[in-house]
Design a protein around this nucleic acid. Structure first.
Lengths: 193, 193
DNA sequence: CGCGGGTTTGATGATGCTCAAGCCCGGTGG
DNA sequence: CCACCGGGCTTGAGCATCATCAAACCCGCG
């Protein structure tokens, strides 16, 4: 159950056997069925989640009720609403299981404890946040001033997995275009190949 | 010179006098004149910069030659291209001084040393990255599926300072709209108030 | 068989970009 | 002191892109 988690951490920092045990103790397993919510808009996100199995999507809902996919989490990913978690404010995000999921969670205050008990873990989280920053910055660069089909190309180049695993509607929402537009773009691309 | 830096760090973590001295040693002062570049597209960003005085803008340039402001850095801010820094790849960002600046810089490899010498500094950087994640996520939420005037409203609400300090063209680029559109939006808002 | 979801396709309209011209204002040089 | 210049901002007209609405389609499933 916790193996993938420890492997994931060990990719970036070294952990002694003892540290591994300590970390294990803090992460509590949880299951989610398809369409269940990990977090709902308005809740305060007070824990960090590692995905052992399954897929989730985080999205925000605007005033008109449209959903905008912010990010996806596959096996081996971490998920949570950083804004809510670190800002201690109600989340504007909703996080939903796209399929049955197996998760490992640590509560924010326990993570603080773990930081001091296992400094390597704090280092790992720092590195993880660096990567998150990178991903968000890339995403932002793409979303400013690219037209719809350029965004799609870019996404395909960066993570072709998304296009295969996810339904069209979600990808459209992720790119910030309507599903009709994305459908037309795909047809175009197909004609040329 | 280093006071603002130490204050900035001390807002989040406690530092002993000795640690403060250590940190000081690693941060090298640098000045930039108006319009000088801190980083140019294609360079590898190998240092982190703290702004003691002045204002800078980071922007990316798309295929058509349009500039897109990614973020601004004022006094007390940190600036750098995280993608390039942590990914060790050529930067797609350019960072330019909007006015005369006084900066403090630490090289990436020295920062790694500093992490082990002063764990509190590593903690500070982790917290800083958390905040960066938050800011980027907020920005992304805003840039997806908000129309031009909503984006402007949102920006005004979140950081009215920007609207005062920065020329219209830069704000437009930050919001991902043309300067003409932003000009029209402002006129509209003005008419209502 | 009929239902529902995800997807496709078409027609229409709004939003916002582009291009082009003019304006305002501060700086510079005659 | 004034004329000129240039950068930033405004304003207008036309046009491209893309969202919206509506209808049909496809396919797996009860």
């Amino acid at each position: 159950m916790h193996n993938l988690l420890l492997e994931n951490i060990a990719e970036n920092v070294h952990l002694t056997a003892e540290e591994q045990e300590t970390i294990k103790k803090y992460f509590i397993p949880r299951r989610l069925k398809k369409r269940q919510f990990l977090l709902q808009e308005g809740d305060i996100c007070d824990r960090i989640t590692f995905v052992s199995k399954g897929t989730l999507v985080s999205f925000s809902i605007d005033e008109k009720g449209n959903e905008h996919a912010i990010s996806f989490a596959f096996e081996g990913y971490w998920v949570g609403d950083w804004v809510s978690l670190y800002g201690h404010e109600p989340s504007r995000l909703t996080i939903e299981a796209l399929e049955a999921c197996e998760l490992l969670q640590i509560r924010a205050e326990n993570q603080e404890l773990l930081f001091t008990k296992v400094p390597a873990y704090e280092r790992f989280i720092r590195i993880h946040h660096q990567n998150t920053c990178m991903a968000l910055q890339r995403r932002l660069e793409g979303s400013l001033g690219l037209c719809a089909d350029e965004k799609y190309d870019r996404m395909i180049k960066q993570s072709p997995v998304l296009a295969e695993k996810l339904p069209l509607g979600l990808i459209a929402s992720y790119l910030g275009v309507s599903k009709e537009t994305l459908s037309r773009i795909r047809r175009q691309k197909f004609a040329y190949s």
